[in-house]
Write a protein that binds this DNA or RNA. Structure first.
Lengths: 203, 203
DNA sequence: CAAAGAGCTAAACAATCGTTTAATTAGCAT
DNA sequence: ATGCTAATTAAACGATTGTTTAGCTCTTTG
């Protein structure tokens, strides 16, 4: 017994996860070698295989942790807002914070696509979908004008959001300036907001 | 003399370019081996090095050809339109056609980022910028509402456009249905279009 | 016909890859 | 102290990588 506690004798697993996240995010999956990860974690290549059976499993572990973190940050950011369009804005900001900050975990999900690793594609897609489902609910609640597809809106929004790491450089304007632009483009404009719903309720 | 003509004895260079484009677009740069490309072109690995000195140079050649093609298609699509917002719409459709059709050249530019190959990053960025500059002009002509950044609009639009290969599957609705959504989101809404310009000219 | 060169093949090269193996160290229970 | 297990090192494994080399086969040119 006492198996859960009492085993911190030199565990390099957290450091390995961090190092793997950094390299996968910055260079991609195929350009990252197990030796890169091991060296960044201050460990011998062989040590990685004590914690993980394959390189693919290492990516899956990073992916799972990344999705957990990005969902956690999203949930915390929108929890105290009730207005759908405010929740929408907070979600956009939370997403940007996740993929633009120094922690690389969320960036891995954006950069490494499931199809990059066919053997693990299904598992990666599973984790990815967990987040996308959460995002979908926020958009469904938005009450779009008639004729607009909420699925397409989500795809376009996530595409635009996820490409920010490529071009964004922190400026004095801060993130809010960019969030404003996202809302201006993707947010339902005030003059038309809720038109469909009001029409449906004869008013 | 007569050097330009009279030398088609069995040139596999076009086939090699095509094969390289397909593999780079489908699997990415690092996951594509020179043997993959050679085999797809029906050629021995050594033959590739008759036409190109390195793998990076092969990517640069594909990149250059891809940018030429996507610019050519864009130019042809907007040439007979004069209204800026119509040209904008045509450009969106042309871009989607380029990166969604079977020819893989344009998809390579979308998938393989300059930073993926540091030694060739500058050259790749050069080609990429040729296209982005052309796109920039179309947006500048759009006459946005006050406070909106045309640079940011371009970044968000290209981000959304370039992520379509990840999720788009050809449907009976055709491309126009999706182009409509892009215009609905990124196009300047009619009720506000030109407000700033009209205000500037006192009318 | 002979010489030249363009285009390619066959075979190998050294380097690097993901991964495995055996031996070693450190902490904990008995 | 002794044994036990978690965690790691050092060193190697075979496979695959980008690339090179030498030679072969056509077509063209003089």
């Amino acid at each position: 017994m006492a198996a859960t506690a009492a085993k911190q004798q030199a565990n390099r697993w957290p450091a390995l996860l961090d190092a793997a996240a950094m390299h996968f995010a910055d260079r991609g999956y195929h350009a990252t070698t197990m030796r890169d990860v091991a060296e960044a974690a201050g460990v011998t290549p062989g040590a990685v295989y004590f914690h993980v059976p394959t390189k693919q499993a290492l990516l899956v572990a990073v992916y799972a942790e990344g999705v957990d973190r990005i969902i956690g940050h999203l949930e915390a950011s929108i929890s105290y807002a009730t207005d759908p369009s405010l929740r929408f804005r907070r979600a956009i900001k939370a997403h940007l914070e996740s993929i633009l900050d120094a922690s690389a975990f969320a960036r891995v999900i954006v950069r490494v696509l499931p199809d990059d690793v066919p053997e693990a594609a299904a598992e990666l897609r599973g984790h990815r979908d967990r987040y996308e489902m959460r995002f979908r609910a926020l958009i469904t609640a938005l009450d779009l004008p008639e004729g607009r597809s909420s699925t397409l809106l989500r795809m376009l929004l996530l595409g635009a959001l996820n490409s920010t790491p490529v071009w964004y450089r922190p400026s004095k304007g801060g993130l809010d300036a960019i969030v404003d632009e996202f809302v201006a483009i993707f947010g339902v404009s005030p003059s038309r907001r809720g038109t469909a719903a009001r029409r449906r309720s004869r008013r």
